[in-house]
């Protein structure tokens, strides 16, 4: 049940440098979020992941989309119907 997703997000939050995590479905509904991750960003995250797929000739391939700023990086990837976003301090 959702406890396993919750536990997995906690595990990811414990990784060094991670300041937020978010899981959304492929339509942009936020399933869970922790830390700095904004629930309202869920739609953008899954849209970015979906758009990234179109850059490959094989649309089954899911790339990692990464947004970098001076202070923070967001890593976004979708897998099956789930989009994960990890907010990490810039290294």
């Amino acid at each position: 049940m959702e406890e396993s997703l919750d536990k997995q997000l906690d595990d990811t939050m414990n990784v060094h440098g991670v300041v937020g995590v978010l899981a959304a479905d492929h339509q942009g509904l936020c399933l869970a979020s922790k830390g700095n991750a904004q629930v309202s960003g869920a739609g953008l995250m899954s849209s970015l992941a979906e758009a990234g797929k179109q850059l490959s000739s094989d649309e089954q391939k899911c790339p990692v989309v990464c947004l970098e700023s001076d202070t923070c990086n967001i890593l976004i990837k979708s897998h099956d119907n789930v989009t994960m976003a990890i907010y990490k301090v810039a290294s």
């Binding site: 997000l9 990811t12 899911c62 890593l75 990837k77 994960m84």
Partner: peptide, 10 residues
Amino acid sequence: LINSAAATAA
């Protein structure tokens, strides 16, 4: 990190 997180979340 993101690959494994996405796979386990799914």
